[in-house]
């Protein structure tokens, strides 16, 4: 796989953000904030009537996109994001990205990328940048040497 500045990363889509998954993550993250599992608490705060996804899960969708693109979790070197807006239960979201620059020795490419997560029909939930190692064999699961 060869990439260059301007190469679009394949989207990673979640057709419906699941309220049940937020409950699982609330337990795993020991996150007691009720906006992730209690719609009444969300309403009481004037934040609508749907539970709100955990920020790290929104970040995970972007990581999923990068893993699916690069072929192996170890290809991801860095990720930095700013949280811009909320994702709610039932939302459809799309993680996307584009390569902004490439460095490397010919065998391995280090791609700097802009990345984001958009709510379909809604706001951009997060935006940031990622550094990803891409090798010719990455699409078959080979891990680029560090």
């Amino acid at each position: 796989m060869r990439v260059s500045a301007g190469t679009a990363l394949p989207n990673f889509e979640v057709d419906e953000v699941r309220a049940a998954a937020m409950k699982t993550m609330a337990v795993l993250l020991r996150d007691p904030n009720p906006i992730h599992f209690d719609p009444d608490a969300v309403a009481a705060l004037g934040m609508g009537d749907r539970v709100i996804n955990q920020g790290p899960t929104n970040m995970a969708y972007v990581v999923n996109m990068l893993v699916a693109w690069a072929g192996h979790p170890a290809c991801i070197r860095a990720l930095k994001v700013r949280f811009l807006d909320n994702v709610r239960g039932g939302d459809r979201v799309v993680a996307g990205g584009v390569v902004t620059s490439v460095a490397g020795d010919g065998r391995h490419q280090i791609a700097e990328c802009d990345v984001w997560l958009d709510v379909v029909g809604g706001p951009r939930a997060l935006a940031g940048s990622a550094t990803v190692a891409v090798a010719a064999g990455a699409a078959t699961g080979e891990t680029p040497a560090r």
Binding site: R18, A21, T57, M59, A60, Y61, N64, A68, H72, P73
Partner: peptide, 15 residues
Amino acid sequence: AVDSPPLPAGVAHPM
């Protein structure tokens, strides 16, 4: 819960 793609055996999700 995060709709992860398949991962290599034993390798943790980067998150």
